[in-house]
Amino acid sequence: MTSINPTLSPAGGTSVPPAGPPAARRRSSRAAETRRKWYEIIGLTTPAVAVYVMFVLVPMGFAVYYSLFRWRGVGPPTEFVGFNNYILAFQDPIFLDALRNNAIIVFGSLLLQGPIALAVALLLNRRFRGRTVFRLLVFVPYVLAEVTVGIMWKLLLTGGGTVDALLKQIGLGSFVQAWLADLDVVIWTMLFVLTWKYVGFAIILLLAGLSNVPPELTEAAAIDGASWWQTQRHVMFPLLGPTIRIWMFLSMIGSLQAFEVIWVTSVPAVRSLGASATMATYMVDNGFFARLWGYGNAVAVILFAISFIAALLFQRFLLRRDIEGAVTGRRS
């Protein structure tokens, strides 16, 4: 997962198995050897390259093409409208709401999940009996299907449902909201559900990062008289930097695409008013279900462009340090 950028991977220069036997062979046999090598290279990579190009790259190319037409999806697109679909999207207040909601989800997820995950990971990194069981339980929400999570919370949060009843029982009845129907509340409800679902992933990554910290370091800190907290603060946190940045990157890309949980949990009417729509739900609602294929593809291109630019900026400014570490041979 570190290796989002190719230069992050140690594999890069480490394995360069020079092919073939010592040089003292006849030329023709070496040529045969080279030819054989290329057959193997082509034979082994072609299936992966073909599937990848066909189903990842080609569709995005088509999206750009379709986005320039007004097209209901029947027959080939003929009504060329230039960039009109893009202009329309940015003039639609619902789409602008979706953009704002995506921004809330991106930054809300980082701000909520980061501290929670760090605290839980440090807690579960302590040695105590039953730790494995606790780890397993904490990961459960992350393993559940988005649909399952959506339906679960929809039932729990429905008006007069379990959450409301519990709040009343503990005397917080005045806090009860129309969690899924109030247009001002629903996006925050969505953020809560998404946080509940995905914080486990941040915890998994951070625990993996913590377990890579050599025990010698914490032992040395303990010998120097550092308290548990001082050890975490001055030894663990700095070493977790790369893991945290990678999690931030993955979380950001995921948040920009948020679809399933919102699609299932929030009522379509609320979504169509923009209160809980995201770029992805807006795209599927308009492109697939309303059959505005040209328009939907324009939204797809916008979603892709925003993700791509965000990813590049993130790599440029935040992952740079990790890349430098990899290049300067931090580990060797």
Partner: peptide, 21 residues
């Protein structure tokens, strides 16, 4: 690098053209 680029392609964004294809 060509393969790692795929990590930046959100599968959600490609869903409409994918369906058409």
């Amino acid at each position: 690098t060509f393969f790692t680029l795929g990590l930046l392609f959100p599968s959600g964004a490609a869903i409409l053209p994918l369906y058409l294809m």
